[in-house]
Structure formats: C-alpha cells, structure tokens
Design a binder for these strands. Structure first.
Length: 506
DNA sequence: ATGTTC
C-alpha cells in the first residue's frame, strides 16, 4: 500500500519534513513536506513524494521543492506543490500550474443573517443555477466576440468592472488586482479561443461549486472584522471555479509544444526521460515566454469568470430579496488563485530575487506588512481561502511570516482529494449523498443526468445525481486536519470557519 | 480540471 516507505524523510519540526538533496543525484534542492504525520503517511500511498522529489530536478529551482498539507498526486507536480524557479535562468512548467489555470476561490460577505435567507434559499439557488450554468461544456450568459475575448484576456477583472460586471472595490480585493500584465492574447491558439469565448461566467464541473454559507466560528475577532466577518450566522458566498475549457485547451497545446522543444536540449531531455509529465521550458526562451504570456491571459480569463459569477450573485440576491446589493453589503472579501505561476520577488539567501513561483493546488499567503497587499489589507495580512468539501467547513485564514520565509508565501488550498472519483462512485450513491446533506439542512443543486447521457460502468447503477458521489466529503481530506497542519507548521493562521446552507455543484 | 479519447 505505502509504496514510498523507503524514501528517507527526516523531521525538521512539528509537521515539517525533508528529503535531503543527496537522496537522488538529479535533485538540485531538498524536498519539503508540510504535513501532519498522518497526512504524510497518506502521501506515501500514491506518487506525491516521488513527484515532489522529481520537481527538485527542475533547472533554476530555489530553496526547496515543496508540498502543502493537502497534497496528493497530480500531473507531473503534486497537487499542493510549490516550486519557485529563477526567472532569468530557470524553467517554467505547465505541470506546475495545472490544466485549470487560475482555478481559484472567491469569498463574498453580506450583512444578511441565515434567518433572512433560509425562506428564500430554494429560489435563490434555482435562479443562480440559471445565471451561472453548472456542468460540462455549457455556455454562459455573457456573449463575447473574438475581439471582446481579447479585451477580457488583457484586462481580467478590470474589463468586468468597465463593462458593468461589478464594483470598483472588487479590483483591489482580487489577487494582483485581477489582472496579470504579461497577458498576451496572441499567444493563445485559435481552438482554445473558440472553445473559451462562450464559457465566461460558467461554473464548470468536478469540484467546482457556488456555495451559500454562514459564519460558523470566529477564531480571531480583530482580523475577521477587518475582513468583514462579524458574527455567527452571517451569510457568505464561496465561488470555486477557474479557466474552463479555455484554459484546458491552452495547457494541452503548450504541453505538446514543450515536449517537442525539450528534446533539442540536453539538460531538458534528461528531465523528459525522468518524468515526461514534467515538461518545461526556460523562461528566457521564446517557448517559455510564450507559455508564460498565454498562462497570464488564462489567469485573467479565470479572474473575470469568478467576477462575472459574483455579479450574478449580486443580481440574484437583489431580484429574490428585493433589496439593492449595496444595502445588503454584498462585498468581496478576497479572490485568490490556487493554480498559477507568478512572477514574484522573494528573498533567497539574503538576496531579493525575481522568481517564477509555481503554485499548483496551493494558495498565496502573504503576511501583514507586505507591500504587495492592497491598502485595505496591508496592515492586516492577506486573506487565505481554504474551502472544505460538500458538508465540511471552509476556512478563512491569514498569511504568516513563516510562510513568507519558507514557502515563498504559500499554503494549502483546500482539503485535497483522498479517494479517486471512480472509487467514490463505487462506494457512494449520489442520491444518498444528497439526502444525507438535506438532513443536515444543506440543499444541493446540480444538473440531473439522464440515463442515455451516462456511460454506464457495469458495477455502478444509474443515479440521476450520480456525479455527487464523486464529491462526497469522505472522498476528501478532512479540512479541519489540513488547517491544523497549516497552523502547526506555521504557514497560516485561522481566522474564521463557515458551514454551507446551499450548494450549486458543478 | 476537461466538448470525460487529437
């Protein structure tokens, strides 16, 4: 079961572990694991540790190849992987970003209380479901021409605000102001543009969701208040989605191109033979920079996607509750990317360096005082969003000095999968998952499947809510364990917890 | 994650 028990892992301190660079000759830096022992043991049952070790072979990697407490096996990099490479001499790797570029989360607060919203919950969810389509391959309500799509790719959240999809204040409450300046629409292939143009403002599938919740517990009153989180029972909204089919197309396109290019370079050829999924290109090369600029465009698309979804949340609350969004104080707390490679400066061995920080299923977590934070949060610290799964709590945390010093200002991004989708489908029935949540007063809305649309697996009976089983809480790590490990290792500090009352599941 | 197999 535990295939990686032979890897030498030594304890650095509570919930921090290290595999020395000397373990393999291709490692350029040690591998670091931020996790409680039980989480570390789970990482040994799949390829998580081996993948973290492989990432340590990337040219230009600084300090450590890291994996966060919710880490598990992914494509090339583990999900939960963090790796920073020298921007001048190092490489960029699409596997260190993921297929869903700028998949991320947005937390919204309101001044409404659970009792105000409960009676209207079914209507709110039904209406939201119309405005923010959930499921594979669907089109959104915003219709874009190709030239408008290019404007979105360059402008991100700014384009949304200029075109009536949000408030000016939403911009500074989004990581990087919702706009990566290096974005270049010309670096996107036509096929991805065609696929992505109609999908803006859609939720997608899998673990993507739009969730109405309430404040369940406040751990730090001062910070919570600064983030607009004031009391138990206060209604909040979480949106988890990313760059849709658009980003998937771009990632696939560049992975293919990278593999062809790598065989021409001796150093990169070795990486390709070690692990094909670690395709990469020097940032200081045409191919590397093309991907970087395309990836930034995808990131802007995803920021815009979540911004437009929030716009519909404001509109639906207005329509159903018959009150202006301003009066209900439907305000963005923060929007954060958790699948991205960012140009950031960090201190390495006493020197400030320009790095490419890959966060793949990992969240930026800057502490108070960081000059890159917007004025509203500069003296408070960056809000860190760690959503749970269906029926478990989600957390709002804050970045720490330890994170800044050790993990290039990064921490966990959520609970992390623990059971494969197929395994979850075999073990649980979607309808039962839905009923169990209903017993706990959590309404789940999702696209119902028709029998003829579902490719039958012989041992799994048809269920119109079948896909819900893939996202059952038991298929994920317990978020309480993940947040504890973030705190014990020192890379984040919890501020508040939320529990869901209504979920639109993608 | 994903027009769930270019």
């Amino acid at each position: 079961m535990n295939r990686d028990v032979d890897i030498p892992v030594r304890k650095i301190r509570e919930d921090v572990w290290e595999v020395p660079q000397s373990y393999k000759d291709y490692m350029r830096v040690p591998a670091r694991i931020y996790a409680a022992e039980a989480l570390l043991d789970k990482m040994k049952s799949d390829r998580t540790l081996q993948q973290t070790i492989n990432v340590a072979s990337l040219p230009g990697i600084e300090k450590y190849s890291m994996v966060m407490p919710d880490g598990h096996q992914g494509y090339g990099f583990p999900i939960g992987g963090v790796a920073a490479t020298d921007f001048e001499e190092g490489v960029i790797s699409p596997g260190g970003v993921g297929y869903d570029i700028n998949c991320g989360v947005r937390l919204i607060r309101t001044n409404l209380m659970e009792k105000d919203v409960r009676p209207h919950l079914p209507e709110i969810l039904d209406t939201l479901f119309e405005y923010v389509p959930a499921g594979l391959g669907l089109s959104g309500k915003v219709r874009l021409s190709y030239s408008q799509l290019d404007e979105v790719l360059k402008g991100g959240t700014e384009w949304c605000i200029e075109n009536g999809y949000g408030w000016e204040e939403d911009i500074e409450r989004t990581e990087e102001g919702g706009k990566l300046k290096a974005a270049n629409p010309e670096k996107i292939d036509e096929k991805s543009k065609k696929r992505g143009a109609p999908q803006l403002g859609t939720l997608g599938s899998g673990n993507h969701f739009l969730e109405l919740g309430v404040v369940d517990e406040i751990f730090d009153e001062r910070l919570a208040k600064a983030y607009g989180i004031e009391k138990q029972g206060q209604v909040t909204v979480l949106i988890h989605t990313g760059g849709r089919g658009f980003s998937h197309g771009v990632c696939s396109y560049y992975l293919r191109s990278f593999e062809r290019e790598m065989s021409k370079d001796a150093t990169l050829s070795k990486i390709l033979s070690l692990e094909r999924e670690l395709a990469c290109a020097y940032l200081n090369s045409d191919m590397g920079m093309d991907y970087f600029e395309a990836m930034c465009a995808c990131a802007n698309y995803a920021f815009a996607n979540r911004q437009i979804a929030m716009h519909w949340v404001r509109k639906v609350f207005e329509d159903v509750l018959r009150s202006p969004a301003e009066d209900m104080e439907i305000r963005l707390v923060y929007d954060i990317a958790h699948n991205i490679a960012k140009e950031e400066e960090h201190e390495v061995e006493g020197k400030r360096k320009k790095l490419c920080v890959h966060r793949k299923g990992a969240t930026r977590a800057f502490p108070a005082g960081d000059e890159r934070l917007p004025p509203v949060y500069r003296n408070i610290g960056q809000p860190v969003l760690i959503p749970g799964s269906m029926g478990t709590r989600s957390f709002l945390a804050v970045g720490t000095e330890t994170a800044k010093l050790e993990t290039f200002g990064s921490c966990a991004h959520g609970s992390g999968r623990e059971m494969s989708r197929t395994a979850a489908m075999r073990k649980y029935r979607g309808s039962e998952v839905r009923e169990e949540l209903a017993k706990r007063n959590i309404i789940v809305k999702t696209r119902e499947r028709r029998k003829r649309d579902v490719r039958r697996k012989r041992d799994i009976p048809f269920d119109k809510y079948g896909e819900l089983a893939e996202e059952v809480a038991a298929a994920y790590k317990d978020p309480e364990v993940v947040i504890r490990s973030c705190e014990v290792s020192g890379i984040a500090k919890r501020v508040a917890a939320f529990r869901a009352i209504g979920v639109i599941k993608g």
